[in-house]
Write a protein that binds this DNA or RNA. Structure first.
Length: 562
RNA sequence: GGGCCGGUAGCUCAGUCCGGCAGAGCGUCUGGCUUUUAACCAGACGGUCGGGGGUUCAAGUCCCUCCCGGCCCGCCA
């Protein structure tokens, strides 16, 4: 490894002066600008379109985005390029796929045989299993693009296949093959398999279409190599070659990853690139080395980000433990999700679908701190003032709170209260409750209600998908019930208790008392309550729940009056 | 085994780069207010800053060491 290799842990490094930033992206932007980059400054990310692009993959888009936006705010022209490494060969069949709407689909539900026959082929040369896009690679690239779109991030998607076919990679590929000895020498530091016959170029077999590994002759000046289509090991299985011996141009193949990444930096002029921690100790040092000591380039400013988990478990496309951006945006507003990605990339975090309310509450506070509505520490305020404008559409980055038009400030209903509102099917009832609780102004305009109630729909979807304690629908009208005399008496007693004004905990206790006083088995009494309010045999903790509803409604329903 | 990143209140996280009283929200508890409340207000409880050692007038922050978790250390990407 070269001695001047730079640490990818950019956020852990000293600026070298007294600059102190509330936002990590400012720290990175400083590091980029210290290089005196030419404009447009290029921020890159990229993934292999091998399967379902889940929320974790969005780090690759969002981490770069915030740096790009900070640079734009400082007056620089910035391109955010995203490479789809779609010339990579399919090495194993994914167990789960996703259609263009983001719905997960089992491998068995598509033509798995057609996919299996394409092992070893570039993703862009494999038919789209859903038949909707030009290729397998294009299909999943589209999903990445729509994820970025949904979060309002303008990326320029660059297909590796196109970069090869259009000749953008030709010069650097030729250079590598002309300096194959030096290339081997650099790579040998990182890979055991580099012998004197190793050629860092993988031609695509003209006969069977597979990405091959055996180059038998190099004619760099003529822009050609000879190859033999030999067997290829992929994990624990072998993808067999067809044995064809042929000739390929430098546009008809690909560079191996350790060279391809630095080649992208050179061809696209990349100034900054974030990447997951899996690259930190592996391909980053080798890429840095290749860029400096083989290609003679300065590598981009790097930044390692930690991975996050989904409900405490690693993302796993194959096991279906994934969530896509579109799924998440059914549950919370884009700005809340952007806030999640604006947090310190050095920390491994959980994305808790089960506790999304906490994530939303955190954002609501962050927003309130920005607008100076709540007390906060100096650090917290500094961070909110700097970061918040990057999260929302209604402010430009760099806007100080004093300059922010207050009338644009969104009305937010606390998330769990929104979930409670969601239990009522009737719109007017929802509004009534929200106004009464002070979460909406008196006589709110339709526009204010519509905007605030977007969260009600989301919270309702959340309750339904999580099937949690908010996933119930309150019956608007008295259901057709027929209780015995004891039950009716007990319900009347409970109604009197509620009418006297007690909180949920007290009501819960009283339910037990009332049942006992009237000689009812407690389970039957709870059942009667669930029947009355939900038309179901079971429900949420009843006392707590009734305490959350409007008293008059509860009393009338308990008395079977409405 | 080696390298790297992380570990702060019950939960979610700021604060570590640059040493200066251990912080916020949620949750819990107490009280208040609203002639109803999950709302609102006030307060309380809650900590071995993973453990230990060192430097310092002063350490969550710097140094050493150990523990735990993740990533990397064959190929691929």
């Amino acid at each position: 490894m070269s001695d001047d290799a730079i640490s990818p842990y950019t956020l852990s490094t000293d600026d070298g002066d007294d600059r102190r930033h509330a936002f990590w992206a400012d720290h990175v932007a400083d590091a980029v600008l210290d290089r005196d980059p030419d404009e447009p400054i290029v921020v890159k990310g990229g993934i292999s379109p091998s399967g379902v692009p889940h929320l974790g993959n969005m780090n690759e888009v969002m981490r770069g985005y915030f740096v790009a936006e900070v640079l734009r705010e400082r007056g620089y022209e910035v391109r955010q390029v995203f490479t789809s490494d779609d010339r990579d060969p399919l090495r194993k069949l994914p167990r789960k796929l996703a259609d263009l709407e983001g719905n997960l689909v089992d491998l068995g539900d598509v033509d798995a045989g057609a996919l299996g026959r394409n092992l070893g082929h570039p993703y862009t040369a494999i038919p789209d299993p859903f038949g909707c896009c030009d290729s397998y690679g294009a299909h999943f690239s589209n999903l990445i693009q729509s994820g970025a779109d949904a979060l309002g991030v303008p990326i320029e998607l660059a297909s590796n296949t196109d970069l090869y076919e259009d000749g953008d990679f030709e010069a650097v590929t030729r250079f590598v093959l002309e300096h194959v000895d030096e290339a081997r020498e650099v790579l040998r530091e990182y890979q055991d398999k580099i012998d004197d016959d190793y050629v860092p170029f993988n031609p695509i077999c003209s006969e069977c279409g597979k990405v091959t590994e055996t180059v038998t002759a190099i004619r760099a000046s003529e822009g050609e190599v000879d190859y033999e289509c030999t067997d290829m090991e992929a994990g624990d299985q072998v993808i067999s070659g067809c044995g064809h011996a042929g000739t390929a141009t430098l546009r008809e193949g690909k560079l191996p990853w350790r060279l391809e990444w630095p080649a992208q930096w050179q061809v696209l002029g990349v100034d900054f690139e974030p990447f997951g921690k899996d690259h930190a100790e592996g391909s980053w040092p080798s890429g840095d080395d290749v860029a400096r000591n083989l290609l003679g380039n300065e590598p981009p400013v790097p930044m390692v980000y930690e991975w996050f988990t989904l409900d405490g478990e690693p993302f796993s496309s194959s096991e279906g433990h994934v969530v896509l951006v579109d799924d998440v945006l059914d549950l919370l507003e884009p700005e809340v999700l952007r806030h999640f990605f604006a947090k310190n990339p050095k920390k491994a975090r959980d994305f808790p679908l089960s506790r999304l309310d906490q994530l939303v509450d955190e954002f609501d506070r962050f927003e309130a701190v920005y607008y100076g509505e709540v007390e906060a520490s100096e650090d917290e305020r500094e961070r909110a003032e700097r970061v918040y404008p990057f999260l929302v559409d209604h402010l430009d980055p760099g806007t100080a709170p004093a300059d922010a038009p207050v009338e644009e400030r969104p009305t937010r209903i606390p998330y769990t209260f929104a979930a409670v509102l969601g239990m009522f099917p009737d719109h007017d009832v929802r509004v009534e409750h929200a106004v009464k609780q002070g979460h909406l102004p008196e006589d709110p305009s339709d526009a204010v209600v519509d905007r605030a109630f977007e969260r009600v729909e989301r919270a309702r979807t959340w309750a339904s998908r999580q099937d949690n304690e908010y996933n119930y629908t309150v019956l608007e009208d008295l259901p057709d019930v027929d209780f015995d005399a004891e039950t009716e008496a007990a319900l009347d007693d409970l109604a009197d208790f509620v009418a006297a004004g007690h909180d949920g905990e007290a009501i819960q206790g009283e339910i037990y008392e009332t049942a006992k006083d009237n000689g009812l088995p407690i389970g039957d009494f709870f059942g009667a309550g669930y029947e009355l309010f939900f038309g179901e045999a079971e429900g949420p903790q009843l006392g707590q729940f009734l305490g959350k509803l409007e008293q008059e409604f509860v009393v009338q329903r308990l008395r079977r009056e409405a």
